[in-house]
Simulated scan of single mutants.
Amino acid sequence: MSVDEKRRGRERTGPVVREEQVLEKIEAFRRRRPRLLEDVVTMAHGAGGKASAALVDAVFLEAFRNKELERRCDGAVLPLPSGESLAFSTDSFVVHPLRFPGGSIGHLAIHGTVNDLAVMGARPAWISAAFVIEEGFPIEQLRAIAADMAEAAKAADVEVVTGDTKVVSAGAADGLYITTAGVGLIPPGRELSGDRVRPGDRVLLSGTMGDHGAAVMLARGDLGIEGEIKSDTAPVNGLVEALLTAAPSTRWLRDPTRGGVGTVCNELAMETGLGVVLDEASLPVSPQVNGVCELLGIDPIYVANEGKVLAVVAPEETDAALAAMREHPLGRDAVVIGEITDRLSATVAVRTAFGGTRIVDMLVGDPLPRIC
């Protein structure tokens, strides 16, 4: 073969090699965790999307790196000598306003931790509560919020067994911040993990998207919008137990809070390396929430809930899972919203009503700050 023939051969094959390299780079980019580029913390770092993931990875995971943190779950799973496992989770609540249609910061403080434990497969049992209270905060309001917490704990069948109180000077805490931590027991043999998710599995959602985020935004009164939207804040541990009894092969669970269903599905895709394909026509949104989101220019798929469950179940258990969820008061509107596929890698896509598809990326920025 002459030199010219070799050169022409390289020219013919060169573009193919370069295209493969480009595809590999695109794939690597999709799998890459977000990087922390800012020099200071911004509100976006609390939104539960890309900026939050970058902050956690670059600062906290880097400082405290261990096996449990590497899982990036809602809490830690710690084995016990009895064969059971202990689930341990913590969360802080800075919602503004402190009271909104459907609940208060007190309800959120209990529900948030109970729900994080429940979607880990645990049966929540004990809660700790720490309060940062601003000087001048009315005692009657504090008493009312404590009563809300007691009410929520009773409904979730958990006890607040320890806590702490700090008071800061006026203007330093926006009234009241609450941090709760909780523990619960995971029965032997119960395992929920992205490692168990398989192509063909179905994605279920227990009800409508965005109720909590929309309710809090309207309660602030800054938008000049009136509407009858209540937060869905509620303890989902009973719903989860009903689901796991009916569908014991359930693969994976999450509660779609900050960043909504879209962000949680992206976390699922990154954890498994598989694709999540959602059906736009099946995504449940109330007309009121949809109207608020249209006015604000926000996709409801990114708006938070505080009383919903996102589940990945085996195809053969889908009907049983749906039936069990719909029999529970918190799962009456449960629906299959999508499926897992190996035709996409670590990507979330939505099939539109027009027959096309669109990519749903992780939330960028903070469209709804201070909602939990």
Rank of each mutant, 00 (worst) to 15 (best):
R99V: 13
V335T: 15
P256V: 07
N305W: 07
L61R: 15
D222M: 10
V261F: 15
A152N: 11
E226T: 11
F137G: 06
G194M: 06
A219P: 12
R33V: 00
I26R: 14
M149R: 10
L55Q: 06
L80D: 05
Y177G: 01
E24I: 00
S345Q: 14
P284V: 05
L244K: 01
L295A: 13
L368S: 00
G210V: 07
H111E: 14
D333S: 13
K67A: 12
G184A: 05
V348T: 01
D91V: 02
P199M: 08
L55K: 07
R143H: 02
K230N: 12
A156F: 06
R258M: 09
E327I: 00
L274G: 00
D74H: 09
G102M: 09
D148P: 05
L86E: 13
G75T: 14
A130K: 10
L98M: 03
E70F: 01
A147W: 01
R370T: 00
F354M: 07
E228F: 02
M270W: 13
P329V: 01
A53M: 13
A118P: 05
S345Y: 11
S85A: 14
D157W: 05
E68T: 00
I371E: 10
L239F: 07
L274D: 05
E20L: 15
R190Y: 09
L344A: 08
G356V: 05
V161R: 12
A54I: 05
I371Q: 12
P188R: 11
P256D: 13
D91Y: 07
L223I: 06
S345C: 11
T208K: 15
V285D: 05
D211R: 15
G121R: 14
S89T: 11
V40T: 09
L223Y: 14
F88C: 03
L108D: 07
A153N: 08
